[in-house]
Computed example of a mutant assay.
Amino acid sequence: MSSALLPCVVLASAAQAEAARCLALTATQTIYAGDIVFAVDNAMAAPDSDAMVVLLGDIVIGFYRLDYPTATFGKQGVDRRTATLRAFALDVAWQGRGLGLPTLAACCADLTQRHPERVLLALNVHAANTIAVQLYRRAGFVDSGERMRGGRGGPQYLMLRALGVGQWAP
């Protein structure tokens, strides 16, 4: 994949957030990632979150949010060196094109650059979402061994990724 076709990630502007609200997700994605409109609106309003869009050129092809925890995450105490990744989703039209891994690489690189004090990225992924689990493993996330109760999607794994080291590069 040439660099011209690699996705980039940016803090969502108002116009980009509006485009992210219109992303098409499959029913299964919605079970795992949640309602995209709620995720965008909630991240845009939360002072301890970044609403992030995934761009391919000028086209918004995905969304995720980064949270900077001020409360306990799983069994682990508050660690201001940790960020959490939530609501990661690419529009259905852009799935299956090999964009997930470079998007996660861009996410990690962006987070490291903007928040060098953050050294760990955490996420919960539904155990039944095997495609996402495989993607996160390929992107350098490791299973912490901790299991979280899940909502409609069932139990979740807590996965962790060190930032600033071992970054995947195209």
Rank of each mutant, 00 (worst) to 15 (best):
residue 1 M to I: 09
residue 4 A to F: 02
residue 5 L to V: 01
residue 5 L to Q: 09
residue 5 L to T: 08
residue 7 P to H: 09
residue 7 P to F: 02
residue 8 C to P: 00
residue 9 V to A: 11
residue 10 V to H: 10
residue 10 V to A: 15
residue 11 L to Y: 00
residue 13 S to W: 07
residue 14 A to G: 00
residue 15 A to E: 15
residue 18 E to C: 05
residue 19 A to C: 14
residue 19 A to Y: 00
residue 22 C to A: 15
residue 23 L to D: 01
residue 23 L to Y: 06
residue 23 L to M: 04
residue 25 L to D: 02
residue 28 T to V: 12
residue 31 I to E: 11
residue 31 I to F: 11
residue 31 I to L: 15
residue 33 A to P: 01
residue 35 D to T: 04
residue 37 V to I: 14
residue 38 F to E: 09
residue 38 F to R: 15
residue 39 A to D: 07
residue 43 A to S: 15
residue 44 M to K: 12
residue 46 A to G: 10
residue 46 A to H: 11
residue 46 A to Q: 11
residue 54 V to E: 10
residue 54 V to W: 03
residue 55 L to S: 01
residue 55 L to Y: 00
residue 56 L to G: 02
residue 57 G to N: 01
residue 58 D to I: 08
residue 59 I to D: 11
residue 59 I to W: 00
residue 62 G to M: 05
residue 62 G to Q: 13
residue 64 Y to I: 01
residue 65 R to Q: 14
residue 65 R to W: 02
residue 65 R to C: 04
residue 65 R to M: 09
residue 66 L to S: 06
residue 66 L to V: 15
residue 68 Y to R: 11
residue 69 P to N: 12
residue 72 T to V: 12
residue 74 G to H: 06
residue 74 G to V: 11
residue 75 K to H: 09
residue 75 K to G: 12
residue 76 Q to W: 00
residue 78 V to W: 07
residue 79 D to I: 00
residue 79 D to S: 07
residue 80 R to M: 09
residue 80 R to D: 13
residue 82 T to K: 09
residue 83 A to C: 13
residue 83 A to D: 02
residue 89 A to I: 07
residue 89 A to F: 05
residue 90 L to G: 13
residue 91 D to K: 05
residue 91 D to H: 08
residue 92 V to Y: 00
residue 96 G to E: 02
residue 97 R to E: 10
residue 97 R to I: 00
residue 97 R to Y: 03
residue 99 L to H: 08
residue 100 G to P: 00
residue 100 G to N: 01
residue 101 L to Q: 09
residue 102 P to H: 02
residue 105 A to I: 07
residue 107 C to R: 06
residue 108 C to W: 03
residue 108 C to K: 14
residue 109 A to E: 13
residue 110 D to K: 14
residue 111 L to G: 10
residue 113 Q to W: 11
residue 117 E to K: 05
residue 119 V to T: 15
residue 120 L to I: 08
residue 121 L to N: 10
residue 122 A to Q: 15
residue 123 L to V: 06
residue 126 H to Q: 10
residue 127 A to T: 13
residue 129 N to I: 08
residue 129 N to V: 05
residue 130 T to D: 10
residue 132 A to Y: 05
residue 132 A to G: 08
residue 134 Q to W: 02
residue 136 Y to P: 04
residue 137 R to W: 01
residue 138 R to D: 06
residue 139 A to Y: 06
residue 141 F to S: 00
residue 142 V to A: 13
residue 143 D to C: 01
residue 146 E to I: 03
residue 147 R to I: 14
residue 148 M to E: 04
residue 149 R to G: 12
residue 149 R to H: 12
residue 152 R to I: 01
residue 152 R to M: 10
residue 156 Q to Y: 01
residue 160 L to E: 06
residue 160 L to S: 00
residue 168 W to L: 14
